[in-house]
Structures are given as structure tokens and as C-alpha cells.
């Protein structure tokens, strides 16, 4: 380790924000749990209210926490070593997200390559098909479930293709924004980041469009068997991440307009852009495995 001169590692004094965050997650968990129960059982209760309170607390906490941190960063308390901690932390966080999506991709592959062929009688499962699901045929996309629910498959051309192009472009503009920041070209930075956020928003609008089309015209719903399940959970969680990523980038844009970030100190921006690239890669995987194949 070549570290001739020791820069002090900033260890913050005690902070109220984490415990606020813990309370927020508590309210979210209790609220979401009760909300789900109340919705499906058609009873009334406070689930929804608690959930909203939880999110409000979370947002409050994020503002407070990040305000602290921005303040510390701007007053020069941070060292290069701390910057590395943040970057590594973000990288591992993204890795955990990869594994989260991995679970759903795993479910998709398992259903396609194992469960459905077995229901159709392959391997040593002839009896399964003959005795339990004699009318079932194993095909993918699963347009008719063993239980007899019918649906339509979503094609890859049209909206999904357009969305792919949009996200790919946004990843490029996001990268250019980063380059501009490093070269201290603030005008180009604002333009490129603005375009990225805008493309993200367009993506979301089109995605909503696609969902409406699926529900209203195709009969493809969350209830239409494993095809619909994997389709909506994968694209749904992806959509959630796009929304989150776009919000993060939008906040970065606001900070840039306020004059934050320098060519060599812009962790928050970099984290946001990594996140955006990650979301983009997930989409490419999705487009390939959910739509095309």
C-alpha cells in the first residue's frame, strides 16, 4: 500500500438518521403486511396509512441523511479512502440486486426447462401428464396452463423493441454525462443527464402502455399462469428499479444545477450512473429471455 501521507478517515459522530430509517422500515413492513391482508380479505384497517407513514419517514430520513452527508462532503471532511468505501459499497449493493433478479430469472428458467416439460410428461414424468393433466401440452410461452387458463404471449417487436432502444441510448447518454463531468463541461453534462432522465421517463410511460395493452387486450395478467407471473414480476421489478434510478438521476441533475460535484469528487453521481447501467443490463437480459426466446 503506497500511502505516504495518512489522511484521516472520517468517522461521523453519532447520528439520529439510521434509527429513523429503522423505524421507517418497521412501519413499511407492518403497513405493507396489513395492507396486503386487508386488500385480499376485503377488511378495513390501518395498513395503508401505516405504509404511507413509513414511506414518508423513509423519505424524511433520506433527505436528512443525505443533507448531512453532502454537507460533510462539501466541507472537505472526506478522504479518497472514504470515496473508495462508498464506491465499493455501491458495487456490492448492485451485486446483491443482481442476485435478487437472479432468483426470478432462476424461476423463469426452472419453469421453462423443467416444470413445464415435466407437466407435459417428459423425463420420468409420463404418469404426471397422463393421470393428472391429460389435456396439457408443454409449450412456451405457456398460452394455456395445465389448469386451463388461457392467455396470449407478448411479442418482442413493437413496444419492447422501442423500449430496448430507448434504454440503450439512455445508457450511452448517461455515460457521456459522466465523461462531460470529468472533463468539467457543465453544459454538456446538464444536457446529457437531462436526456437520460427524460428517456427513463419515456420508458416508464411506454411500459405502462404495454401493461395496459396486456391486461385489456391480451388477457395477459398476473393471474395467467407462470408465463404471466414471470413476465410481470421480472418486468415489474425492473420497472421499479428504472423509476428509482430515474429519480436518483433527477436528484443528481438538481444538484448539478446547484453547482455540486467536481471532476474528481462526484461519488453520488457515479453511484447513480452505475445503477442506471445496471438497470439497463437487466433490461437487455429481460428482453432476450422474456420477450425473444
Amino acid at each position: 500500500m503506497a500511502q505516504p501521507e495518512y489522511e484521516k478517515y472520517y468517522v461521523p459522530d453519532s447520528s439520529p438518521w439510521p434509527i429513523v430509517g429503522a423505524v421507517a422500515l418497521f412501519l413499511i413492513a407492518v403497513g405493507a403486511g396489513n395492507f396486503v391482508i386487508e386488500q385480499t380479505r376485503n377488511t378495513s384497517g390501518y395498513g395503508g396509512h401505516i405504509l404511507v407513514a413509513g414511506f414518508a419517514t423513509l423519505i424524511f430520513m433520506l433527505f436528512g441523511w443525505f443533507r448531512n452527508q453532502i454537507h460533510e462532503s462539501m466541507s472537505g471532511l472526506y478522504s479518497a479512502q472514504l470515496g473508495r468505501s462508498y464506491r465499493q459499497g455501491m458495487a456490492w449493493f448492485i451485486f446483491s440486486e443482481v442476485m435478487f433478479f437472479g432468483a426470478f430469472f432462476g424461476a423463469l428458467f426452472y419453469a421453462r426447462m423443467i416444470a413445464i416439460p415435466w407437466l407435459g410428461g417428459s423425463g420420468n414424468n409420463a404418469a404426471t401428464n397422463e393421470v393428472l393433466w391429460p389435456a396439457f401440452e408443454a409449450i412456451w410461452p405457456l398460452v394455456e396452463t395445465p389448469g386451463g387458463v388461457q392467455t396470449e404471449a407478448m411479442g418482442w417487436y413493437g413496444l419492447p423493441l422501442i423500449n430496448t432502444v430507448i434504454l440503450l441510448i439512455s445508457s450511452v447518454t448517461c455515460h457521456f454525462a459522466h465523461v462531460a463531468l470529468e472533463e468539467n463541461k457543465r453544459g454538456r453534462l446538464k444536457l446529457m443527464l437531462g436526456i437520460t432522465v427524460l428517456l427513463g421517463a419515456i420508458f416508464m410511460v411506454l411500459q405502462v402502455e404495454e401493461y395496459l395493452h396486456a391486461y385489456q387486450e391480451m388477457g395477459l395478467t398476473l393471474q395467467s399462469g407462470i408465463y404471466g407471473n414471470t413476465f410481470f414480476l421480472l418486468t415489474g421489478f425492473h420497472g421499479l428499479h428504472v423509476t428509482l434510478g430515474a429519480i436518483i438521476l433527477f436528484i443528481m441533475l438538481l444538484r448539478i444545477f446547484k453547482g455540486h460535484f467536481t471532476p474528481d469528487d462526484h461519488f453520488a453521481f457515479q453511484a447513480g450512473s452505475w445503477y442506471w447501467h445496471f438497470v439497463d443490463v437487466v433490461w437487455v437480459m429481460l428482453f432476450f429471455f422474456v420477450y425473444i426466446l
Partner: peptide
């Protein structure tokens, strides 16, 4: 709660898939 069938054969899922995950 939401009517998916990841682990239900009638919808093309498999209870054993749960165990794998």
C-alpha cells in the same frame, strides 16, 4: 395474495421449485 402460481402446478409452476430457490 396476488394469484400468481410460481409454486402451483395448475398454473405451470412447481412446488419443488420453491425448494430449489
Amino acid at each position: 395474495f396476488f394469484g400468481t402460481s410460481f409454486f402451483d402446478a395448475a398454473g405451470g409452476g412447481d412446488p419443488v421449485m420453491f425448494q430449489h430457490i
